[in-house]
Design a protein around this nucleic acid. Sequence first.
RNA 1: GCCCGCUUGAUGGAAUUGGUAGACAUACGGGACUUAAAAUCCCGAGGCCGCAAGGCCGUGCCGGUUCGAGUCCGGCAGCGGGCACCA
Length: 854
Amino acid sequence: MSRYNAKETEEKWQKRWAEAGCFAVKEDPSREKYYVLEMFPYPSGKIHMGHVRNYTIGDVVARYKRAKGFNVLHPMGWDAFGLPAENAAMERGVHPASWTYDNIATMRGQLKLMGLSLDWDREIATCHPGYYAHQQRLFVEMMEKGLVYRKESSVNWDPVDHTVLANEQVIDGKGWRSGAPIERRKLSQWFFRITAFSDELLGALDDLDRWPEKVRLMQRNWIGRSEGATIHFKLVGRDDRLTVFTTRPDTLYGASFCAIAANHPLAAEVAQNNAKAAAFIAECNRLGTSEEAIETAEKQGFDTGLTVQHPFVAERRLPVYIANFVLMEYGTGAIFGCPAHDQRDLDFARKYDLPVLPVVLPPDADAASFAVGDEAYTGDGTAFNSGFLDGLGVAEAKRAAIDSLAAQGDGEGTIQYRLRDWGISRQRYWGCPIPVIHCGKCGPQPVPVADLPVRLPDDVTFDRPGNPLVHHASWKHTTCPKCGGTAERDTDTMDTFVDSSWYFARFCSPRAQSPMDRAAVDYWLPVDQYIGGIEHAILHLLYARFFTRALKEIGYVGLGEPFAGLFTQGMVCHETYRDADGKWLFPEQVEKSAEGTARLLDGGAPVTVGRAEKMSKSRRNVVDPEAIISTYGADTARWFMLSDSPPERDMEWTDAGVEGAWRFSQRLWRLVGENLASLPAKDTPPPADLSDVTVELRRVVHKTVAACGDDLDQFRFNRAVARIYELANALGGFTAEDAGGRWALREGLELLVRLIGPMMPHLAEELWRQLGHDDYLVDEPWPSADDSLLSDERATLAVQVNGKKRATISLPVDAGDEEARAVALGEPAVQRAMDGKPARKVIVVKNRIVNVVV
RNA sequence: GCCCGCUUGAUGGAAUUGGUAGACAUACGGGACUUAAAAUCCCGAGGCCGCAAGGCCGUGCCGGUUCGAGUCCGGCAGCGGGCACCA
């Protein structure tokens, strides 16, 4: 019996599927559609195991839904703009475009080896003018609807390289290449008005019932709706006021200071004639723009010397600090601090020796003795030390405080969102040019739709840092579309998140002359199942949700939510290896012993084995998918990806696991091959009488069919895999003794082959052919189970005494509670455990358990 | 710092959603086949005590609810994801 030759067979079927056009689809209103989409890859060079996992999962869903009769759209494309292409240009002197297109060619070839059921005719790349031209048009139309505007915003500035840095390029407050301490710098930039949809984006989460709860929760928290109050403090000795936002107006009597952001206008004013304040602000600006850097930095403040008047206690004065933890982007860029009931305020107060006055009394505390130590009290309680608020609960006190502030004209109730508008300007070359022309007379003007696209010029060099578009005179200088005078193009490009915010819509009509064809999107959208990494839980998914709403406003789509179902898969991890000097080693440099120790293949020096971590180039714990596929075949790689670990969890890639998957594919090959000669011809009707063992086998087969379908519906691929192992074990251990047995064996083998179809498509197709079928398995409908074989006649019940299992009993499935009770109490082990005591209570759960309480 | 997860044998995990913990697989041990090896097939196995029957313990840690908790509640620890210019 020959071995299964995966390489040859996979090539053969991939070619035939492509020639037959199995996976090319078009709109067909007579059929129910199903749109499966995996997050499209960034063309970084080669595919990695994370891609293999993502696309395997998506392909199983696509093939399964196809077998279930849906008209399945399953496209692929490239998220092709981005920073790494420019880095490659600077490091290796290659043009970002050729680097990107080369990578796409390589990765397309690798994906094809996986045997994915993709409609390659719909392939798109976001860096192609055929894509970004439409994106520019959408930008212009959003501008006309008031969804785009311009404002000042901070960026990370590298003072040595004279370039803007991404947060990722700022390491410990320093530029990644120059090593120079970075500065915050203000630039005029374009923003999408995502906050116009804050309430909608929040509210609609409730209806996304096929999204993971944790993603919805993260988005809710990100949008961060909070009800509170805006308070206008009178600045002592001045005519103007300091406006703060708070969620705790009930603690106003406990306020001991106000704090403003370093880039608050008042701070700038103070700094004008206070060198120390200016120095402090400069220090704050070195922190970078990321929230993490700001929040983890040591809390620091600078006393401006200004004070404000307490709105409820006229004689009380609160000092105004500039503080490094107050964000200009949130609320009003200013807060009041109540140290007793906010941890950050408490830390600040202790540091600068400010009063800590408790004003909320915990339920069981004593007003005379309650004091705040190192921990602020943030729970519910009763207001005290708070004048007219005394005795009120937190919620009532908030209302009363707001009412009173409003009555005296010092404030009002406000709803505040944490969500900020989306800044999309990037001072970089390799992105979608922002289609705007700046005219000295007319101001910024959108490029007329007829003049689109604004193409990225090819003739650029990366021999100096910064954006080459700025130095490209013939591209940059143009005329104003309004007045015809000399003008300059906007040299910024769009955030790459814009590209990925509507590609799912473009896939519906990838060659349309407009951004999208309305009939096509009406048919295909929403995406029924979107699949990708959890790391995109907030930004990408929120931006895409916003963008879809914007598309609706400008008339391209009729729906608000792009993704009806979302699945977030876990990462692919691998052990890490280091040599004696702590240098990372590739898995192929290491030889492992049975005891788990490892040594260097070259020379045998000892190697330290570290725990499994996300595969990454920097740690070298990577396994090349192409090498795995050429050794074992795509089906083996796919099967291993689906085995063992639930898809939402991180999985560990191991050699042993791949080999196990490979052995199983060989076993299936033998299982069919060895039985082939004894099987009846296909479509032979079943003999009249089947023996008991044959019926037992059919029960296993049909239970597996039913359970596998459920598992695939629920993304429980690892369970489906385990069930298929069980089925293969049952079929392998079955000896057909008569015609009925041989008939049932054929039935079982055919169903087994059909069940593995979505997971190991090439092997399944080949075995289907071996079993005598000359149609494509990919065109076969999903099998259904014979319901009469799904139920058992007897059940095994556990018998517990006081919750401890003492025996098991077998009963007919329709046995009554009385019978179960009698049989259970009759068990010798149960009587022994009862130790002669009477049963006080007997709980019977049908077909499950009997618990005797003594 | 803030938000969100995860934690079950040597290992990945399963557990009908509060009802027999450890399915299935990997690694391991024993056996069969073979001149031998590989491959394949069969058997074993949570830990401790015991010849055995059986007993006790056991789902990261501490506590609670319940006839019954891996599953629910409260607290803690460890690990991971995100934090708006990485994609």
